[in-house]
Design a protein around this nucleic acid. Sequence first.
DNA 1: CAGCAGATTGACT
DNA 2: GTCAATCTGCTGC
Length: 206
Amino acid sequence: MIFGRQLDTDFFRRNDVTNMARELLGTVLRTSFDGSHTSGIIVETEAYRAPEDKASHAYNNRRTKRTETMFRDGGISYVYLCYGIHHLFNIVTATENVAHAILIRAIQPIEGEDVMLARRGMARLLPRTTAGPGSLTKALGINTNHNGLDLTDNQGPIWIEDPGIDKDQPIDIIASPRVGVDYAEECAAWPWRFRIRGSKWTSPAK
DNA sequence: CAGCAGATTGACT
DNA sequence: GTCAATCTGCTGC
């Protein structure tokens, strides 16, 4: 098992969520609970920046029981149920009362492939095992019970590391409009979806 | 491959 | 009641 540098609160409490969504590409998302350990390289993210972002649940600083998590200090998880079925995993960023978040859309598996396959009910590892925000949470075992957890604690159950390799070689990033936010009017066109160019592990959706 | 419908629940711009 | 930061399986090219 390889452990890199733990991402800390100094990183997560910054206010430049779009830069942070880029910087998270190439970092490692890990889960460890119920005796199972899984990890993968983050290869696709999306930034959500309330209050001005109409695609965000916290648009116009709308506070509900669900969105309250996004207003907390950066460095915790925001997990919610989408379409009644899919658990979507976000990283809350910025300082308290600033509702910025980053949706993790795809990972490249590193460890625990067999656990991921069992959770997904699949026989072999394919890009679609962990590509797409609903798919990767299922593979990693993340659900709404993991909402509001501290992501800077490397005792788990969920945390993020900078592997600290290939730092001299910048990652080639594709920026494009976010997926599934057509309702967000002018914000729908903002190029806040970020992918590692050439990765076959990113989500296929439009 | 494209296109479409069903699943299923919480929030309501 | 309607819609949502989605995925899957089915149909028909």
